[in-house]
């Protein structure tokens, strides 16, 4: 049974599609890279899967996984890093589903938080506020939070953007560990070398799906050229899409 199925899925803003008529499915345990030019709808697709955006058309079937059971790494730019919160507390947010409003963070939970911080190489950073972290350390913090969420479906929005090679390698190792644990992972990426080297399957998106399948067959010069040519433009005068849903 696939972890995710899209049926003529259209997502967008104010009736303008950012993801247009996407069909296909993601298998349980798949490690899928989502690539495409800026404005191709990659982040929009993740927001749709996580339920933050209602489809304009079509459906997303999550195969029994509830929207709340998905671990989601937002783009780092959308986090208020000036807010005075300790790294430890930021990581502890990953326990929300267990702890909720009032649930105590018990001794075992504290051990799990410590373990997650060690796993991403942030032991000793517990009391630092997030404003004092470098970009790489911030991304490690968010990965520690993902570890605690312990989700079957993991969505990563540009996890390696503005991250140095060593941090990227460390975080990639975590992703591979999740892949080994048969978790389903979708990652929005820009670096095609990383995709070719580590991601078995790829979805090339340029508002419309350009290609989807085994990475070597998707990332061909032909497909990449087509992706670049599909318009990014927002047409105010666009007519109503007549394609059957």
């Amino acid at each position: 049974m696939p972890a995710l199925t899209f049926r003529t899925l259209t997502l967008g803003y104010e009736r303008h599609p950012a993801v247009h008529h996407l069909d296909g499915s993601v298998a349980e345990g798949e490690l899928l890279a989502v690539v495409g030019p800026n404005g191709a709808g990659k982040s929009t697709l993740l927001k749709g899967i996580v339920g933050a955006l209602r489809p304009l058309d079509g459906v997303i079937e999550r195969g029994g996984v509830k929207a709340r059971d998905i671990a989601y790494l937002p783009q780092i730019a959308e986090i208020d890093r000036s807010f005075p919160i300790a790294v430890y507390d930021m990581v502890a947010m990953g326990l929300w589903r267990r702890a909720g409003l009032f649930g105590a963070i018990a001794g075992t939970d504290r051990a799990r938080i410590k373990a997650a911080m060690s796993a991403v190489g942030l032991a000793g950073f517990e009391n630092r506020t997030i404003g004092t972290l470098s970009g790489g350390q911030m991304q490690r913090t968010l990965f520690a939070r993902l570890l605690l969420q312990d989700a079957r479906l993991i969505l990563l929005d540009e996890p390696f953007t503005a991250i140095d090679a060593r941090t990227a390698a460390d975080l990639l190792a975590l992703i591979k560990r999740w892949h080994g644990e048969r978790r389903t992972i979708l990652a929005v990426l820009h670096d095609l070398e990383t995709v070719r080297a580590h991601f078995p399957t790829t979805l090339l998106l340029a508002r419309e799906p350009v290609a989807w399948g085994p990475t070597p067959q998707v990332l061909t010069p032909d497909n990449l050229l087509r992706a670049r040519h599909i318009t990014e433009a927002w047409d105010d005068e666009a007519g109503v899409c007549e394609r059957a849903a």
């Binding site: 339920g51 933050a52 709340r68 989601y72 986090i79 208020d80 919160i85 947010m93 929300w96």
Partner: peptide, 14 residues
């Protein structure tokens, strides 16, 4: 606090 720091994350879990 979560809504202030990381509203997208809060939206994804609650």
């Amino acid at each position: 606090v979560m809504e202030c720091v990381d509203p997208n994350f809060l939206r994804s879990v609650s």
